[in-house]
Nucleic acid binder design. Structure first.
Lengths: 177, 177
DNA sequence: TTACGTATGATATATTATAACATTCAGAGT
DNA sequence: ACTCTGAATGTTATAATATATCATACGTAA
């Protein structure tokens, strides 16, 4: 499978696993861009060079990345990029389901499955900052079940879990404060 | 029951319901303060006048409130309060489980059940900004089950649900964009 | 009384995000 | 080709949120 880091079958619950340290980075960025092209073509939205470039930068970081860090990198190719340059692109990418915002980090990350609308949950490793993107139906259902019971109409769920990933616990067993 | 807006029995799953518009506000603030005193006395931490005052302000707002809004109010009684004044107090209150931070709003809210350690989920009404605090075991379990399956060790869960509360949907039925 | 730790005061600055207005540019209709 | 329009981007300024750092106060234990 050419697309490392994604197992986007119709109802996958793990959208993007923690990144193994060895993988074809260039390929997974390229795959994300091409999925974005498809998606934007489908909804007739314009995937401009700027937006493409920002999406590439998000994917290249391969983990959550802040808007101002993106801005710095963007300036390599666009000397006069300013905060709105980046924020507008990020807004576009979020509206079109190409990236997610991680609220608890004020950061952004590529969506592992832009072809499909889905809820999302994130497991965030406090040590290596890697992130796994999930679309766990059981979590989503548990939330909506309780919300329904209270007459609350759910529009958007933010589920972000901080902890330690398997690799990092293996590396420093039981070394938690 | 003196404590309106709280049904903190041992394993309540709704910690604090949406606020009814009529309730004894003064009483519920007073109850929160007295619960905080108890809690701090128990762990030997010092519940200073400043920290008390900030907690009172958080509860008085009876909904999520931002740090700088708190700062303004705090200045009524402390002319030279500065951002660190507020942020230190907020940090203390969070560390001691007396308030929660709502990541998706950059805001703070009183914890409805400070006597007890618990996970928390929030239902946030996009119209009236009221918030319900939950401790839904099914949600928490769904999260940890999936995390376990991936070898991820959960330390902290952030679950924030945006939508429309029952009162507001009754008020403007089907008026969603 | 001194020494120490905790809390607060005070000043400056970092970080994240948006407002507002100007310019460019591609495509639709003429 | 011309012009109108709307979307995208450029540009400047500022808002909103949060932290770093050093100074001062104050209680308390030695």
């Amino acid at each position: 499978m050419g697309k490392q880091g994604s197992n986007a079958t119709k109802d996958a619950e793990v959208i993007a696993p923690f990144q193994s340290h060895v993988h074809d980075h260039g390929q997974c960025v390229a795959d994300a861009i091409s999925a974005a092209e498809t998606r934007c073509a489908e909804d007739g939205s314009s995937f401009t060079p700027l937006r493409r470039e920002v999406l590439e930068l998000v994917w290249s970081s391969h983990g959550p990345i802040g808007a101002y860090e993106l801005l710095e990198k963007l300036r390599d190719s666009r000397r006069n990029a300013a905060p709105p340059t980046v924020y507008r692109a990020l807004d576009f990418l979020m509206e079109h389901g190409l990236i997610h915002r991680i609220e608890s980090l004020n950061a952004y990350i590529g969506c592992g499955d832009p072809e499909r609308h889905h809820g999302a949950q994130f497991l965030i490793c406090r040590d290596c900052q890697s992130v796994a993107e999930l679309d766990d139906k059981a979590i989503g259902r548990a939330v909506t079940r309780r919300a329904d019971a209270l007459g609350f109409d759910v529009e958007q769920q933010t589920v972000e879990v901080i902890g330690q990933c398997a690799d990092c616990s293996a590396r420093e067993p039981d070394d938690r404060k």
